[in-house]
């Protein structure tokens, strides 16, 4: 089971001029096994939604609720959220100097499972995950995100998704900056993840391109901190043809 319910979520960030409201009441439910795409123009609050669900300290929740299978996500620490089954693939993965990818993956897997993975199967699993994402076997010896190309960073995020195998994955602009080959490799990884039973995906993107590879069940148009419209996959086609003007012009 994996049901992520977001109700009337309101979020502010601190600025020089005081707190600024970014999310103005977001309501969204991802039922068992559903993939939802959130699309919207720059600055509409898409990434804020992703990071505030994951618990980034920069954001202050001022109202609303987020629950995962009925559990209060907002009451959990960042790492508790991950251990409860949330995963955020980041738009800008962070460098951790001196910490190798293999050490990082093993530490994360141990934390998520509550016990160290069996060495033999784990090494095999890691190698398989890296290979499926076209990452060199020596990748494990490199320091986390240090000197990675943009494509390597995103493929590394998806390798983590597959190895940690959460209940719900939030993908924050995983497609941005990828060439067509890398986009396919990354999309295949996401599709392998969601082919499993009951996995939820919240796919945040600026472009419709990735939706040709990952077909969503629902599409939400995000404008000015709230959902302006929602529909099926056909809504993405409409956005492709018409852009966001119709939504953003209403704000002016």
């Amino acid at each position: 089971m994996s049901k992520l319910e977001i109700k009337d979520l309101q979020v502010t960030v601190d600025t020089e001029d005081g707190p600024k409201q970014i999310l103005k009441g977001v309501t969204l439910t991802i039922n068992d096994g559903e993939t939802h795409a959130i699309m919207g123009p720059n600055g509409s609050g898409k990434s804020t939604l992703a990071y505030s669900i994951a618990g980034h300290p920069k954001y202050t929740i001022t109202g609303g609720t987020v629950t995962l299978d009925g559990e209060d996500v907002l009451a959990m620490t960042v790492d508790e959220r991950a251990r409860a089954g949330m995963f955020l693939a980041m738009q800008y993965p962070v460098e951790v100097p001196g910490v190798s990818v293999s050490n990082f993956l093993r530490t994360a897997k141990t934390a998520i499972d509550g016990e160290a993975p069996k060495l033999r199967t784990w090494v095999k699993d890691v190698n398989a995950a890296l290979e499926q994402l076209n990452l060199d076997p020596t990748f494990g010896t490199r320091n986390v995100n240090e000197g990675f190309s943009g494509g390597e960073k995103k493929r590394h995020e998806i390798a983590q998704l597959e190895l940690l195998n959460p209940k719900v994955a939030i993908l924050d602009e995983t497609d941005s900056g990828l060439d067509i080959d890398a986009l396919r490799v990354v999309s295949d990884g996401v599709n392998r993840f969601r082919a499993q039973e009951g996995k939820g995906v919240l796919l945040i993107t600026h472009y419709t391109r990735i939706l040709r590879y990952i077909t969503p069940d629902f599409v939400h148009v995000f404008v000015d901190g709230r959902i302006a419209e929602q529909g099926g996959p056909e809504l993405a086609d409409q956005l492709e043809a018409e852009g966001y003007d119709k939504y953003t012009s209403a704000l002016r």
Binding site: G55, V78, D79, R83, F87, T107, A111, L164
Partner: peptide, 14 residues
């Protein structure tokens, strides 16, 4: 903080 957030978002405690 960003490094710590990244690691903690993978389930690793503080």
């Amino acid at each position: 903080d960003e490094q710590l957030f990244y690691l903690r978002a993978r389930g690793i405690d503080d």
